[in-house]
Structure formats: C-alpha cells, structure tokens
Amino acid sequence: MNKSMTGMLQKLGPLLGFFVIVIILTFMSDNFLTLDNILVVLRQVSINALIAFGMTFVILTGGIDLSVGSTLALSGALTAGMLSSGMDPMLAVILGMLAGAAMGAFNGIVITKGKVAPFIATLATMTIFRGLTLVYTDGRPITGLSDSMSFKMIGQGYLFGIPVPAVLMTVAFAILFFILKKTVFGRQVYSIGGNEEASILSGIRADRVKIWVYSLTGLLSALAGIILTSRLNSAQPNVGVAFELDAIAAVVLGGTSLSGGRGWIFGTLVGALIIGVLNNGLNLLDVSSFFQQVVKGTVILLAVLMDRKKTA
C-alpha cells in the first residue's frame, strides 16, 4: 500500500512541478494563461515532444539517440526536395517519414549487430546525417515548396481551433502510450531495459526490438522535421542542432531512468510541457535568451535532484 503511494507520488511529481511553474508564470505575466498563448505553447512543444516520445522508448531499452536532430534535418530536407520537384505532398510526407525510419533502423542495426555503444553509434550518425543534409542542400535552405494547402496545414494549420502539430502530438501520444502499456512490444521494451540477458533467455529477440525502437525514433524525428519544414515553408540545413538535448531533458524531467527499464511516456509529455512553458514564460517576461538557458538548466537539475532524494 505504502509503496504504491510513494510510487504514485513519484509518478505525479513532474506534473506537480508543471503546475507550480504554470501558477508562478500566471502571476508574473498577464499574457501567460490566455487561450492564444496556450495554443502557441502547444505548437512549440509538439516538435520536442514528438522527438522525446521516441527518445523515451530508446532510453527505456537502456540506450540513447543523439542523432535525432540530424535525422530531423535530413528527413525535412528530403521531403522539401521531393516537394519542390513537384511530387504529390502526401507521398512526399510518407517517403520523408520512411526515410527517417530508415535512418533510425540504421542506428539500430549498428548498435545491435555491430555491437557499438548507442552513445557512440548515434554520435557518429549524428555527424553523418548532418553532413548528408549539408551535401544534399548544398548548405542552402530549400524553398519554393509546393503550394499545396494540405502540406501547409501540417505545420501552420488548425483543426477545431487547435494547431495541427499539437493534434499530431496528441495522437502520437495516445498511440505510443497504448503501445507501451498494452502491447507485447511495450512489455519487451521495458524488460530489455530492465535486464537484456534475462529477456533474451525468455525468448525475446532483443536485437529486433531495439532496431524497431530506433526506427520508431527516426520516424518521429522525421515527423517533427516535416512539421518544422511546413511551418517555416522551407527546409533549413542547420535546423535541429542540439534538439537531442531538449528531448533527453524532457524524458529525464518526466522521471524515466537513464539506465533503462523504468519510466513512462506520460512523464515525457509533462517534461516537454515544462520545457515549453519555461521557454514561453521567460520570453513573455523578457528574460534575456542567455539567462533563459541558466534557468532551464537549473530546473532540470532541481528536478533530477528531487528525484534522487525520493528514490534514496
């Protein structure tokens, strides 16, 4: 009984932190808790949240993926390239996402079959994918995308008054939450992160599961890249640099253990919201962008320290 109570508290800790920040910001700025601003925050958060969802799976298996920002850039550029050559927008988006999944699969194969530590493997592919983006774009933005309304909708549109990126984020969240909680695949992700050896001896094909996990992360990063491309109406070769850090921060803020096997994706959503609200609130308060970084880092540090206290 007692144990599940503390477990519950631990799970709800991030949510509590989020509400504290929201309340403080509401008092400090009149423009914060307004419908318009909430929608802005949701749209901003969606990019990081999508990447962080994938990162949650990776981290649950005990891995890490540093290449998400580069995957985002390369898939965005490829999609933009296809669009500017006149391809059907729907097809271009699907191919762009598959390209991201393929990049993720490549990470997964290097990690499992090549037995390279995830940190090293994705550090290398981070550079490779970024380099490929620069080669492909020749270092210049790709503009002149299609005039297709449906493509513009992805990043700029609204559905029932809600920004489409936020809708996509919510749908992705619901699907991924279900996968982790209710499917064999989700269970395998947790068990591999908890004890890979025991999982293999229980008949789980750990390599395959991991390749799927990295592919999923690649797919989600690509979706984020496509949203960004649509919003900017162009593909920027240097977009997404250091995005992996915000994603990892969101996962950690959400209470998922970096050593794998423990955590949940709802926490990651809250973590991404905390980061998004902080960014937005500090902007509203006219805090200099230099100082914003100090605040963000401090919040992450505090959150993790409090988590350590609770588990100790």
């Binding site: 947790y190 068990s191 908890g194 004890n195 050896e197 025991a198 999982s199 001896l201 096997g261 423990r262």
Partner: peptide, 13 residues
Amino acid sequence: KSEGLVLNLSIRE
C-alpha cells in the same frame, strides 16, 4: 538476478 529475472518488474510481468 542477472539472467533469470528483470528485477524492477513485477512478479506478473
């Protein structure tokens, strides 16, 4: 401990 069980999962899992 190292091969038989996933220690931080439940009996059920």
